[in-house]
């Protein structure tokens, strides 16, 4: 689609700007930079990890079963997205939608649980302005949540595109990039539940 037309001579190489492969590589690079952003937020959390300012700490504030449920939602969402990925590769729209729909709902569930967690902390007087520890906690978990939210918007747009345009090469490429994004968000969450929640409570 994005190549010059006409036969390739021996000095000719199909020129491929904006092609799917280039976009996927570029997106991967963007994800690498995003990982560095999260890493800095992690480092910040570690630095401020004990700065409770006389207030409550992780043991008082975090509910591990709740976080476990959130984690399951996200991992399941990632796995279910695999159905969409496979469907896209096999050119089956029904499979793609069967994957995207549940993945979206599970992600939405994750966001609701997290929003509820934040709300309860804030009304309990333990919002991000309470201490440096809480500032760091809200920021890293919140940044991850904002990314998930953007992923959900992307997912909704993709459901629309699959239904309206079908599985064109570009639509399939976008699904691949969304998949990368979604799986990497789950990877970041592994870091979060391990080092923001578990290690702090242990």
């Amino acid at each position: 689609m994005n190549t010059i037309t006409g036969p390739a001579s021996s000095t000719e190489k199909p020129f491929n700007y904006d092609s799917a492969a280039n976009r996927e590589f570029g997106f991967w690079l963007y994800i690498m930079s995003d990982l560095v952003l999260f890493a800095v937020l992690f480092a910040t959390f570690v630095v401020f990890g004990r700065a409770y300012a006389g207030g409550p700490g992780p043991r008082q504030l975090f509910s591990l079963p709740y976080v476990f449920a959130e984690t399951l939602l996200l991992v399941l969402s990632s796995a279910v997205y695999g159905i969409a990925s496979s469907g896209s590769r096999a050119n089956r729209i029904s499979a793609v939608m069967a994957g995207l729909g549940p993945a979206f709902l599970l992600g939405l569930g994750f966001i609701f649980m997290e929003a509820r967690e934040f709300y309860q902390l804030i009304v309990g007087g333990n919002g991000p302005a309470r201490s440096a520890f809480l500032s760091a906690y809200f920021t890293i978990v919140g940044t991850h949540g904002v990314h998930v939210l953007f992923g959900l918007i992307f997912m909704a747009v993709m459901m629309g595109q699959v239904l309206s345009k079908g599985l064109t090469a570009m639509v399939a490429s976008r699904l691949k990039r969304l998949g990368m994004f979604w799986h990497f968000l789950d990877i970041v969450w592994i870091g979060i539940f391990s080092f923001v929640y578990l290690v702090q409570v242990a």
């Binding site: 399941l76 990632s78 695999g82 159905i83 990925s85």
Partner: peptide, 10 residues
């Protein structure tokens, strides 16, 4: 194989 990979991964 890919579906299997997703299932195993999950």
């Amino acid at each position: 194989p890919r579906i299997r990979a997703y299932a195993f991964g999950f």
